[in-house]
């Protein structure tokens, strides 16, 4: 009985608070698998349930998973990942040769916002690109020379994001695409 209660508590604590891996997570995983090299020092920002990072473990020299959500970090930890709770790169001072991010990219209406953990995982801010742009700004300092960023984007705001990527002095290519019912997802490989 006690175990059952514990299980229920765990269940309730987790499912509604952490973003479940979806098509965008799969796209990031596919792109990362093709990109990763044995000598890479890797960070995944917004690792969520650790869906991508757990499959990259052992394929590189070092891998750090981060998420702003402590509930997500716990799941990563249970999967044996090195994990820290952090808001993008704030609190991280190392340099990385491969940086991965499946960002929140939806633009929520004011009345859609309820301020819970899950919202952090989907709310991309103004135009749906605010978080991605802030990420790219901070990533400049954290990217080792010759390093690569894999960032997921959506057709909904790709044009605007493209402009920002260029404005920040990066170059990019689309390395993977996936068509969904109402949008197309892109995996972008971004370099300085």
């Amino acid at each position: 009985m006690k175990d059952q209660k514990k299980f229920h508590q765990k269940f309730l604590q987790r499912l509604p608070t952490v973003y479940e891996a979806a098509e965008d997570s799969e796209l990031l995983l596919e792109a990362a698998m093709e990109e990763i090299r044995k000598e890479d020092v890797v960070i995944e920002i917004g690792a969520g349930s650790g869906f991508v990072s757990e499959k990259l473990k052992g394929k590189c020299r070092f891998l750090l998973a981060t998420d702003i959500n402590p509930h997500a970090a716990k799941i990563c930890k249970e999967k044996g990942l090195e994990v820290v709770v952090a808001d993008l790169f704030r609190g991280i001072k190392g340099k990385f040769t491969l940086i991965l991010f499946n960002p929140p990219y939806l633009e929520l209406e004011e009345e859609e916002k309820i301020g819970d953990w899950l919202e952090k995982a989907i709310d991309g801010g103004k135009g749906g690109i605010e978080v991605s742009v802030e990420f790219l700004k901070q990533a400049k300092e954290r990217l080792e020379k010759g390093g690569r960023i894999i960032l997921i984007s959506t057709s909904h705001n790709f044009e605007r994001l493209k402009e920002e990527i260029k404005r920040l002095g990066y170059k990019f290519e689309v390395v993977k695409k996936r068509k969904l019912f109402f949008e197309e997802l892109y995996a972008l490989k971004i370099q300085i």
């Binding site: 702003i68 959500n69 402590p70 970090a73 716990k74 930890k77 994990v83 820290v84 709770v85 952090a86 808001d87 704030r90 609190g91 991280i92 953990w117 952090k120």
Partner: peptide, 15 residues
């Protein structure tokens, strides 16, 4: 539980 929480205090308390 082995996890460092590096959120700035105001974010850590708010979320």
């Amino acid at each position: 539980e082995g996890i460092p929480n590096l959120l700035p205090p105001e974010l850590r308390d708010k979320l």
